[in-house]
Design a protein around this nucleic acid. Structure first.
Length: 716
DNA sequence: TCGAATTCCGTTTTT
DNA sequence: CGGAATTCGA
């Protein structure tokens, strides 16, 4: 063991690292250096003679994994340790043991857009109406089930209510569609790998032999599948080290179960527990605010934030008139900071919703401030990029019907809806994949001969591309762009097309980087890797730019100067996360995560009016602002507090710009029909002229306060 | 079959 | 308001 290596740690950190055998839980507050502890532990394990090959560290994002790899390498822990996210680990496992799992290893990974297409088809095929069974909801429900490792068959058993039975049907059909397309969604990756491990003794044996030391960061954000995977892997040797902070759990909506970390000591009774409460990041001013805030969560174990840094820092709360004033004031202030010599990369700006980046972007351009918006997947969501990737997916996995349908007529080659329908009919009749049907276009009687020719030309093109689709990804992409005619059609498309071509060039460069970094580059591997890119993966902390991101993306980062915007009820906490106490506490944790990113100065702001989807809304300062200590509380909340109407004291109100002709007033008890919510009964009518409010209890079970002038109510 | 025009729709966070 | 989906005319 290198003594000098450990000398850099505090006594409690050293203690954490040194517990080398058996289960270890590191409960670590923000800024406590917990990621550093993991890295040191890897180094310590390796230097005490353990083969790096037998170590598996799991991080929350690919970016975090990459950083950890670099730090471990700097500490002399040579390559060989598996450091990746849960999802990447599962991709590896499923590829290696595809045979055992009954999966074709060239499977496509379906993202949200692909999933939506699939679920829509499933809903349709179950003869259901998408209005009553919104695709989003259904996907959410299925995702929750998969995170709990409940498959369609298990869920279908003893369902008695109508919705569950229908969901079971849709779930089953959706899953059939995925299987037919040889595709897995994000949740499948976790579920299939975990179930494989649990149900197959050989695989379990091999993998727990391979990974004798398991280290998991951000354990508070693991979901049930990840929890089972980790615990199954560690069951034999018990060498599981989890680090996390229950106060920073912010992914409940995605299935993260805070109980996983709370139950660690129960799951592993012989566990050593180390608490890291010292904070090496923030000034006392920041920590005091953070502490007061998080103390408002009732469901939590009390934990101190002990400041180590002692120099001056400042926390402010500022109210602005509207979002653009807020954005410009922030931009101006940042401009001054930069003039005073602050490096732009030391500044982070956080907000609750991505939409808020617009106003900021505009202000930053105006003030000539260099910035980067951390939204990595955005690039991969551009039309031209998705088009190219769809070609690649078809080459790697011809069963991928979603991708196939996307490229069939992109660029336009005269293959329209009618032709597609006829081919699909044929495919269903013969029980073959869509691609098989395309190959047999000559035998599809319903097709016109012109269509047959176009289809067989297309098939020949795909076939010839497929023959050359092995090895490094970048040359394949270049060939696809050329041969498919994408290049030519974009070339003719003028300015927009030029832009698209530049993006495609960027894709090729990124693929070339992948080819270099990978030992055995392949199209399948490339596609599966980029499918798991996360937002923060695109963040480059070394370039001289101010970073703009959501609070979720801010996790794990730190900045000298932090700005958090939009502290208004409905925005932070978000209205969709203000329903239950649990949700509210998660919103508070989210804010807490943002606050604790600040090393020195923290600027919090809110706008009295905010434009949301085209409407100017009067806002109420966030309740969280009143939890930061008396000195920071805004003065004007009482103006917005509940008035005698009793209506929605914490909801945003619309300002009446123009009052449309008010419809006849509604009396309590009366039945009404709303365009979207359907039938309901009026509970209350608050007559405020153009701003009249109707409180309606709808038959769906929801109760809503609606502004009369916008509600579009009718009497049934 | 294509592309333009229009309507509709949904509104959080993301591996 | 802005993007997606659908419709409509050529």
């Amino acid at each position: 063991m290198h003594q000098e290596l450990l000398g850099q740690l505090t006594p409690s950190q050293r203690q954490a690292v040194l517990h080398r055998e058996g289960p270890l839980l590191v409960l670590a507050g923000p800024g406590s250096g917990k990621t550093r502890v993991i890295t040191y532990r890897i180094a310590a394990l390796v230097s005490s003679g353990i083969n790096a090959y037998n170590i598996c560290a799991i991080t929350f994002t690919n970016k975090a994994a990459e950083e950890m790899r670099q730090r471990a390498a700097a500490l002399g822990a040579s390559a060989g340790a598996r450091i990746s996210t849960f999802h990447s680990l599962c991709v590896r496992i499923l590829r290696r043991y595809a045979g055992y799992a009954g999966i074709d290893p060239h499977y496509s990974i379906y993202d949200e857009a692909d999933q939506t297409r699939c679920i829509k088809q499933a809903i349709k095929e179950c003869n259901l109406d998408a209005t009553n069974f919104p695709p989003r909801r259904m996907l959410e429900a299925i995702s929750t089930l998969k995170n709990k490792l409940i498959d369609a068959t298990a869920f279908a058993a003893d369902r008695d209510d109508f919705f569950s039975r229908t969901l079971a049907q849709v779930y089953a059909r959706y899953q059939e569609l995925l299987v037919a397309r040889n595709a897995l969604d994000f949740d499948d990756l976790l579920m299939k790998a975990t179930l494989l491990l649990e149900n197959n003794a050989t695989v379990r044996q091999e993998l727990s032999d391979r990974f004798q030391y398991l280290l998991i960061d951000e354990y508070q954000d693991t979901n049930h599948a990840q929890y089972r995977l980790a615990n199954t892997l560690a069951a034999r040797h018990g060498n599981i080290c989890a680090t996390g902070d229950p106060d920073q759990s912010i992914y409940r909506w995605r299935g993260a179960d805070i109980r996983n970390i709370l139950a660690f000591e129960r799951d592993w009774p012989q566990a050593t527990v180390v608490k890291l409460q010292e904070n090496f990041r923030s000034t006392p001013a920041v920590l005091e605010v953070a502490d007061r805030l998080i103390a408002c969560n009732r469901n939590r174990k009390e934990k101190a934030l002990i400041p180590v840094r002692s120099h001056e820092g400042e926390v402010t709360v500022t109210g602005y008139d509207d979002h653009s004033e807020e954005a410009h004031a922030v931009a101006r202030e940042i401009g001054e900071l930069i003039e005073r010599g602050v490096s732009p990369k030391e500044i982070g700006i956080f907000y609750r919703v991505n939409a808020m980046s617009r106003a900021l972007e505009e202000a930053f351009v105006r003030h000539k401030i260099p910035y980067q918006i951390v939204r990595g997947v955005e690039f991969y969501n551009r039309k031209e990029i998705r088009d190219v990737l769809a070609y690649l997916r078809v080459l790697a996995n011809p069963a991928d019907e979603i991708a196939l349908l996307r490229i069939l007529n992109t660029p336009a080659r005269g293959i329209g809806k009618v032709t597609v329908d006829r081919v699909r009919d044929y495919a269903v009749r013969k029980g073959v994949t869509f691609f098989e049907a395309l190959k047999q276009a000559g035998q599809i009687a319903t097709l016109k001969s012109a269509a047959r020719t176009k289809l067989s030309t297309f098939v020949r093109m795909i076939d010839s591309l497929t023959r050359k689709a092995s090895g490094p990804a970048a040359p394949i992409i270049e060939r696809v762009v050329r041969v498919s005619g994408l290049e030519e059609s974009l070339h003719k498309a003028g300015h927009e097309g030029q832009n698209a071509l530049e993006n495609i060039d960027e894709l090729v460069s990124a693929a070339a980087a992948y080819d270099l970094q990978s030992e055995t580059p392949s199209l399948t591997d490339y596609l599966q890797q980029i499918a798991l890119f996360s937002d923060t993966d695109a963040y480059d902390g070394s370039i001289e730019r101010v970073a703009l991101m959501t609070l979720h993306a801010a996790k794990g980062l730190e900045f000298e100067h932090v700005f958090i915007l939009g502290l208004e009820d409905g925005t932070l906490p978000h209205e969709r996360g203000s329903g239950s106490e649990e949700e509210m506490e998660e919103e508070r944790r989210l804010f807490f995560v943002g606050v604790t990113r600040a090393k020195t100065n923290l600027r919090i702001s809110y706008a009295r009016y905010r434009t949301l989807r085209g409407q100017v809304l009067r806002t109420v300062p966030s309740k969280f602002l009143f939890e930061l200590g008396p000195a920071l509380a805004p003065q004007d909340r009482e103006d917005f507090e509940e008035d005698d109407t009793g209506y929605a004291h914490s909801e945003m109100r619309r300002t009446a710009a123009v009052a449309p002709q008010p419809s006849a007033p509604f009396a309590p008890g009366e039945l009404v029909r709303h365009k979207t919510f359907g039938l309901g009964r009026v509970k209350k009518f608050v007559d405020m002229g153009a701003n009249s409010v109707v409180v309606i209890s709808f038959n769906t079970g929801q109760t809503k306060s609606l502004l009369l002038q916008y509600a579009d109510l009718s009497k049934p």
